[in-house]
């Protein structure tokens, strides 16, 4: 259950933090205490037994810490020296500061009181940790969408969503039955059965503009997996290689003089080549290459006219 491998140091650290925690939560159930420290109950008993042997020099019962846990409930006495929590480490401070910034920005606008409170905590922690420059974390805007999806997944209910599909640049309304939320490259996607497509599709949660519960449940008549055929393509990348690598999602190994990869949408491929503004050239397939040339020529004409 313990996530980190036990070292004498990690155990010492935990034991030092156990004393103030138990001091502040006298009579806490052993099982709960083990959960708080993310260890097994047996490990917790071993930790408490070790602590029981510690105290001020002299080490008579007068100086040793007085622990009791046989009843399944833990109390500690005679532990004044260690009873105050330890200072935060720099990593702990950074974790809290970034987390607090995210929380502050995620709070609803009508909770100015809590925003002020969070700002005061950030100021206090930054000062203590000697981190004058604010650490900032940007919240995602799709939190309420994700909560609704989770509800739909657990209740197996249909949802009606308004979705911006990036490649076709269209906003469509669909009924979906969400199956799970997946995270890839910093973005969340909901994997769902789409009534409109009669197949499973994945939707990026931050492109779901609106969602509500729909009536009924999915028909699930389509294929279980979406049969999309991959389009093999080749690129010649002239300049801005890093940008091309990120735009076309290529690995370093693919960045040779002639780059080959697969696209799952012709629209995406055309838009991506257009957006690379001439720094990447699509060499294959020939018909898409011709389409890009035609499309660019047609837009040029529009500029010529005006």
């Amino acid at each position: 259950m313990s996530k980190i491998p036990q070292t004498p140091l990690s155990r010492t650290s935990r034991l030092l933090d156990l004393v103030p925690y138990v001091s502040a939560h006298q009579g806490i159930e052993l099982k709960i205490l083990a959960d708080v420290f993310e260890v097994t109950s047996n490990q917790m008993v071993a930790d408490l037994t070790t602590l029981w042997m510690c105290g001020l020099p002299g080490y008579t019962p007068l100086e040793l810490m007085d622990l009791s846990f046989d009843s399944g409930y833990v109390t500690i006495h005679n532990a004044q020296t260690l009873s105050q929590p330890r200072n935060l480490t720099i990593e702990e401070s950074i974790a809290l500061l970034l987390g607090l910034d995210l929380v502050m920005q995620s709070l609803p606008d009508d909770r100015k009181d809590l925003k002020t409170m969070a700002t005061a905590l950030i100021d206090k922690l930054s000062l203590r940790a000697n981190l004058p420059s604010p650490l900032r974390a940007e919240p995602e805007n799709d939190h309420h969408i994700k909560s609704a999806i989770l509800v739909a997944i657990s209740s197996k209910k249909l949802m009606k969503i308004k979705y911006h599909s990036l490649y076709s640049d269209e906003i469509t309304t669909r009924e979906i039955q969400p199956v799970e939320i997946r995270t890839e490259n910093l973005h969340d996607y909901v994997w769902a059965y789409c009534e409109k497509a009669q197949a499973f599709r994945s939707f990026r949660t931050d492109r779901i503009l609106h969602c509500e519960q729909a009536h009924g449940s999915a028909t699930l008549t389509g294929t279980t997996a979406d049969k999309v055929s991959a389009i093999p393509y080749s690129l010649k990348i002239r300049t801005n290689k890093r940008e091309a690598m990120e735009r076309f999602n290529l690995s370093k190994a693919q960045m040779s003089s002639k780059t080959t990869s697969h696209a799952y949408s012709q629209e995406w491929l055309i838009r991506s080549v257009m957006a690379s503004a001439g720094s990447s050239e699509l060499t294959e397939p020939a018909e898409i290459r011709a389409e890009i040339a035609a499309s660019a020529a047609q837009i040029l004409q529009k500029y010529g006219k005006s």
Binding site: S23, E91, E92, I94, L102
Partner: peptide, 21 residues
């Protein structure tokens, strides 16, 4: 907010200290 992310452990140990107040 750090559950499952890089500073999860540090965040949890910080929280234990704060709860010990």
């Amino acid at each position: 907010a750090w559950r499952g992310a890089a500073l999860d452990e540090a965040a949890q140990s910080a929280l234990i200290k704060l709860k010990s107040i």
